[in-house]
Structures are given as C-alpha cells and as structure tokens.
C-alpha cells in the first residue's frame, strides 16, 4: 500500500489533484466520444461519494461509461445484470456450509467491488432492487447475522431503460433519491458517431487502458471536494432554488433537505472538477438538472411534463444572489 494509511496525514498537492482530474477526464474522453459534460458530471458524482444512475435507451454507451470509469479510476469492478429472476443472494452473496471445517463460509456476491455496475436495474423485481439499494445506503451487507463491510471507495453505477418500456419495475421515487445524480447520455453528434464507427472497438480499447489514479488518490480527491469553499451568497442561492421548488405551483413535492445536501455536495465536486476556487453559481446550475431532476415531481397541472424542462424552469425563475 501507499505511504500513510490515513488520508488526513497525506500531504496532498493541489496541482497533483488538477493533473489527476485532467488525466481522468482526458482518458475517459478518448473512450466516450463527445460527451465531455456527462463525463465531468459522472466524475463529479463519484468525487461527491454519490451513486450514479444512468438512464437512457439501450446502446447509448451506458455500460461502456461505467466500465471506463472503473478502469480509469483503478477500481475493482463487478457487473450485475439485473433480470426479473435475480435474487438478493445473487447480489450480496451466500453462506455455504463447508464440509471441511464444519462451518458456514460467506461467499461474497458481486456487490463486493469498488465499482458495481447494476445494469438495467429496472428489470429486476423490487426485492432484488432493494437489496442493492440497502447496500448502497449502508455501505455494508448483513448475511446470517454477520455484517460484511463493502470495499471503499464504493460506487454503484446503475443503468436503467426509460421506464415506459415493457417488463420493467421502475424504481420508486423514494429509492431514486439514493442516487446522487441521474444522467442521460443521449445520442452522440454525427462527427462523434463517425469517429466511433471508423475507430477501434471500444471493448478492446477498455482492456488496453490503465488506471490513471489510485484509490487512495481518489479518496483524497473526495476529501478535497468536501473542502471546497462555499460562500454565503451561494448558500443563499441554493436555498432560494430549494425554496422555489417547494413553493412553485408547478412542482408537487419540492426538494427535501437531503436534496439540498445533494445539491451542495455535487456542486462542490463539480467545482473541483472544473478547477473553481469556490462553488460558483454555474456549478450549481450545471448539476441542478441531474441532481434535482429525479427528486422533483411535477404537479399534475404543470405545463412542464419533463423533469429537465422543469429544472430549467426553476433555474430560469430564481435570481442568483
């Protein structure tokens, strides 16, 4: 392991952070083409110690992004393909009786990885989904009365097909907000798609790349993110946004205090990624849609059916202080 086991004692050079972040972004950009903003947001999500939900149609590179993140950040990686017959034990693991020493031995499931890709999480039954979500929340799993700590850092990147597709169990609102961000990738631009077609296979590229940073450095980056300066006027702005979501007739349920904490954490991480000296209003605006979008419920009478439009409406209605 590295020198200095606890983070507080490791002297961390800001320039080192800068370099590390730029390298990670550059490396991810070579694999996921033309999605620089989404890459920044995904990185910010992990730096804010948040879990990421990627929601889009199949084939838009959700899995590739998750794999690339694990690879570039040097994290151990497991993929769980969620299906309708997936059981909680398939995620967490099982205790198996060992003939040899007459005891139960815990066989860890795929959740015991630093970055877990929960692919097509809405295809599994609510039971399996909650096993995953509990693990995300607690950072540990309990099997047969024994508590097993999950590795650190621990991230879940879940992907989900938009819920209007057949045979899915969309995550309920209460569980959606376990995810710090919900990203949509969207179609690539024509140039990027051309580069994708003419370029080499993404899977082979993934196996070729090396980790850019070590997990310890990642944790240092996470600490740096929480230490980003946040000014009074910016807190005012966040509060004004939150208040607006609670008072607007277009929104049925506004942001919860957990929602405001998520906004601040994500904005700080984004400020770190963007190399801002403090959290700027732009950081809040940049993460607002992905952080608040899945936490807001439009009112039935609202003209804004789509969470993205709703979030834009909120941002366009609240003055920056």
């Amino acid at each position: 392991m590295q020198r200095g086991s606890t983070l507080g004692q490791v002297p961390i050079e800001t320039t080192g952070h800068r370099e590390a972040i730029d390298n990670v972004r550059r490396m991810l950009g070579t694999i996921i083409l033309g999605k620089d903003d989404e890459i920044s947001l995904a990185l910010a999500c992990l730096l804010a110690r948040g879990h990421l939900l990627i929601e889009d149609l199949p084939g838009l590179g959700k899995t590739t992004l998750a794999q690339a993140l694990a690879k570039v950040l040097g994290l151990s990686y497991q993929r769980i393909q969620f299906t309708s017959d997936l059981l909680p034990a398939d995620i967490i693991g099982v205790s198996i009786f060992q003939q040899r020493d007459g005891q139960f031995e815990f066989k860890p499931g795929p959740i015991f990885a630093q970055l877990v890709l929960a692919d097509e999480v809405n295809r599994a039954t609510p039971k399996a989904q909650s096993a995953l979500l509990e693990a995300m929340e607690e950072q540990q799993v309990s099997v047969d009365g024994h508590t097993h700590m999950l590795p650190r850092p621990f991230f879940v990147v879940a992907t989900q097909n938009p819920s209007d597709q057949i045979g899915t169990f969309p995550l309920p609102e209460s569980q959606l907000d376990r995810f710090l961000m919900r990203l949509e990738l969207g179609y690539p631009s024509e140039d990027c798609e051309r580069a994708l077609i003419t370029g080499s296979d993404r899977r082979s590229m993934l196996s070729d790349i090396d980790a850019v940073i070590q997990p310890v450095q990642l944790e240092a980056l996470q600490t740096a993110a929480t230490n980003i300066h946040i000014s009074e006027p910016l807190i005012d702005y966040v509060q004004a946004l939150v208040r607006f979501t609670r008072e607007s007739p277009d929104i049925e349920t506004g942001l919860s205090p957990r929602g405001s904490l998520a906004l601040v954490a994500a904005a700080k991480a984004r400020a770190l990624v963007e190399d801002h000296s403090g959290v700027f209003p732009d950081d809040v605006q940049a993460i607002f849609t992905v952080v608040a979008g899945h936490r807001l419920k439009p009112a039935s009478i609202s003209a804004y059916r789509n969470p993205n439009e709703l979030c834009r409406h909120v941002l366009n209605s609240v003055a920056i202080s």
Binding site: F280, P281, D282, Q285, L315, N316, S317, V318, A319, I320
Partner: peptide, 24 residues
C-alpha cells in the same frame, strides 16, 4: 463584489436574464 459586478452589468448594455449565471 456584487456592487462592482452590478456596475459591470449596467455598463454592459444588456441585462442578465433572471437566473442567468455570470459565465453564461
């Protein structure tokens, strides 16, 4: 800082929209 920035936006000739960030 806000007072100074206000001088800048007033001199700029266009007004910031509601909710428009300084960078935008």
């Amino acid at each position: 800082a806000a007072v100074l920035y206000r001088q800048f936006t007033e001199a700029a000739g266009i007004d910031p929209y509601l909710g428009e960030s300084p960078i935008a």
